[in-house]
Design a binder for these strands. Sequence first.
DNA 1: TTATATATATCGGATGTCCAACATATTGTA
DNA 2: TACAATATGTTGGACATCCGATATATATAA
Lengths: 104, 104
Amino acid sequence: MRRFVGGNPYCCDMRGMLGFLILFLLSKKSMHGQELADEIAKRKGEKPSPGTIYPALKSLREMGFISSEEKEGKTIVYSLTERGKNALRIAKRRFIRTFLGVFP
Amino acid sequence: MRRFVGGNPYCCDMRGMLGFLILFLLSKKSMHGQELADEIAKRKGEKPSPGTIYPALKSLREMGFISSEEKEGKTIVYSLTERGKNALRIAKRRFIRTFLGVFP
DNA sequence: TTATATATATCGGATGTCCAACATATTGTA
DNA sequence: TACAATATGTTGGACATCCGATATATATAA
């Protein structure tokens, strides 16, 4: 099988960027897991599996970047914490500097 | 050791994005490996090791996305091929749609 | 010539990322 | 109650990404 060393430029996959994207999306609006997965699907064309999205959310929560609140029994709404906002600010700065010029 | 499932949002690391970034940088200017590594270092703050940059270049060359030309014995200048330009166009579109709103 | 610096290259392996599969709980419907 | 649909959650493992170590070749300097 072909190995795409350095990342497959065709796919432009999320490796390493999922946490960042989640923080960014939650900064615009608090959401529950499925909402988040759907929003990501809309953007990148592929819906992350439960085994992808929930461990990511768990990590971000354990790192203190997001908080969770149960809503109406079934869904759990995630929100950015102050620490999360700070982390996002830093990550955003790096992201913008790294990919400067890619956006029109 | 802590596992950052979903990608460490603090680092905003390159996992999966290096090939994309290389294509983008070469689309602005043909460069040799070290030039490329220095440009990446300037952007993301960390210079990729030889074990990172050269295998990535080799992959991109094998995929027909870049061509290489020896210059003055020592350096090898890499340029985007037509296929590479196409790949970049597609990847850029995905990238922009995925991270829409992150750039100011 | 010897030594140093620079550029390229390969390989092994540590580690992270992500999915498939499975499991649980709640809600709504028949 | 039984059944389906939806949301959340866990685990194992395949695979990719990337670095450290190492090697080679060339150019330059002493």
